[in-house]
Amino acid sequence: MTRFLLVPGRGRPRPGHWQQRWADARPDHRWAPPPSGPPFRLDERVAALHAAVTADDEPAVLIAHSAGCLTTVVWAARHTGPVRAALLVAPPYVGPDWPSGTDAGVAVALGRRLPFRSVLVASRTDPHATFDQSRWYAERWGAELVDLGPAGHVDTGSGYGPWPEGERLVARLAAAPEAAPGHPRPPDRA
């Protein structure tokens, strides 16, 4: 059986947001960590994701949006656990001033290949990252890049409540083997 862990962005998703809809409609989709408002504290989010991933031996598919992608990537650089794959939707570009309190280790983590299969979904009109910045992430992380075209931040404000294409991507990742070829698991750095 596969677990599905929803990794939220910086704030609470609106009621119609695709992640919130999936959490409400599917008992096997759980928040990791539960959504909270600002401020975004990356180390706390990474620790909460680690607790959720390691709470069970069943493999998990991580479903991250926005800053949740950063949580996922930093978690993967610091820890291991039973993760089958990750869907990374609209990761924001991390410049020198975002988020406040980001240390040099985060920049290193953002440049590392993920140890599990991943798909990065990017928009050509995302206000938080250019398409070229998203492509750079995909290349560094070893992620398949999915181009949604002009899709904003792939959130409620951009028209993404129901998102059938996202559901298909998650189903494909859930059916994939735990580690893709060329994605060896790193030693645990807990």
Rank of each mutant, 00 (worst) to 15 (best):
D188R: 07
A77Y: 07
D56S: 04
E44N: 09
W75A: 10
A122L: 01
D97W: 06
R124E: 15
F131C: 12
E165W: 12
D132M: 15
W31M: 08
G105D: 12
E178C: 06
P162K: 13
V74I: 10
Q20P: 15
A47Q: 11
D28C: 08
A179V: 04
E44T: 07
P184Y: 10
P186L: 09
V154P: 12
P92C: 10
L6M: 06
R168Y: 00
A47C: 13
A176S: 15
R135W: 14
A52R: 07
V89F: 07
D132W: 14
A174M: 14
V61T: 05
W136L: 14
V73D: 05
A104R: 11
R10M: 06
R189Q: 11
R185F: 01
P15W: 07
A67E: 06
L88K: 02
A175H: 12
T156M: 08
A85L: 06
L62R: 01
G166C: 08
V83T: 13
P35D: 10
P99A: 13
R84P: 00
D24H: 11
D188T: 09
P15D: 04
V154W: 00
L49I: 01
D103Q: 10
A77I: 15
L62F: 03
P59Q: 12
W22D: 04
A51L: 07
L145V: 09
A47R: 09
D188S: 04
D155Y: 00
G166L: 11
L87T: 15
P59W: 10
P34L: 04
L173H: 09
V73R: 01
P96E: 15
S66D: 07
L70Q: 05
D56T: 07
T130P: 00
T130Q: 05
S123D: 02
A138T: 05
R185T: 06
V61R: 00
F4M: 13
T102A: 09
D155L: 00
D28L: 01
H29P: 01
P181Y: 05
R84Y: 04
A175Y: 13
L169T: 08
I63V: 14
G37C: 09
S118D: 00
P35H: 14
P8W: 14
P15Y: 02
E178K: 07
L70A: 02
W98R: 06
R140P: 00
V83R: 13
P127F: 09
G95L: 05
H79E: 05
P162Y: 11
Q133C: 02
G152F: 11
D24Y: 05
D97P: 09
V146M: 12
P38Q: 04
A109S: 05
R10V: 07
V73G: 03
H50G: 06
V83W: 08
